[in-house]
């Protein structure tokens, strides 16, 4: 596909996502923060539903050798990096999606968060240029490399390859786990409502 074609598809996808997120007030930060802080699950339920649909779709297509899965080794840098990100998104009150969406609604705080996200990335680029860690994707070998805290590459396709079991089977297990969490949330919400009604 041509670069123009790729960029056009990406822009159309992003536009629809921006519109839907703006109209629904979905926020990934709220999906985690509100569940922990306020015990409300409006965004958490939406996130779980999306993950169930995506798991079915992605593992289904991976089973028949279709799709473009992300390809780079995973390492302990992902836990540390997303830990910092998790603190940052709660403090900033927005994640990568909602900063763009809130900026589009005229929220200057979100624009400020975006500017400093870019600044953080630039600062890290300077640090990386001294440390050369974690390894660049081009230097990843797919095998564990403990000296660089990299654990190799593993996804639905490699599971299928190694076990001979279709990737969708593993996907269905993940969907059941996600559904169990979703059901537990619904049960909790029902019991909270019943409790509140009973108190009246």
């Amino acid at each position: 596909m041509s670069i123009v074609g790729e960029c056009t598809i990406a822009f159309v996808f992003g536009s629809v996502v921006g519109l839907l997120v703006q109209r629904s007030r979905f926020c990934n930060t709220a999906a985690l923060r509100d569940a922990m802080l306020f015990k409300t699950y409006r965004n958490t339920k939406a996130l779980l539903v999306a993950m169930m649909i995506l798991t079915l779709g992605f593992t289904g297509f991976i089973t028949i050798g279709e799709g473009n899965p992300m390809r780079f080794d995973v390492g302990l840098n992902q836990i540390v990096g997303l830990f910092l990100f998790g603190i940052g998104m709660v403090l900033a009150g927005a994640c990568t999606v909602s900063t763009w969406v809130k900026a589009g609604e005229g929220n200057i705080g979100a624009v400020w968060a975006l500017v400093f996200t870019f600044a953080g990335m630039f600062l890290f680029s300077l640090l990386w240029s001294f440390l050369y860690w974690p390894p660049a994707p081009s230097a990843m070998t797919s095998d564990p490399a403990l000296q660089t805290l990299q654990l190799g590459f593993s996804n639905a396709a490699t599971l299928q390859e190694k076990t001979g079991i279709p990737a969708i089977a593993f996907g269905l297990v993940q969907i059941m786990v996600l559904f169990a969490i979703y059901r537990a949330i619904l049960r909790r919400e029902r019991s909270d409502t019943t409790g509140a009604t009973g108190a009246d």
Binding site: G81, L82, F83, L84, F85, G86, I87, G88, M89, V90, L91, A92, G93, C95, T96, W112, A113, L114, V115, F116, T117, F118, A119, G120, M121, F122, L123, F124, S125, W128
Partner: peptide, 10 residues
């Protein structure tokens, strides 16, 4: 928060 998000992503 913005700085931590940027550093964390990279």
């Amino acid at each position: 928060g913005g700085l931590l998000m940027g550093i964390g992503i990279r």
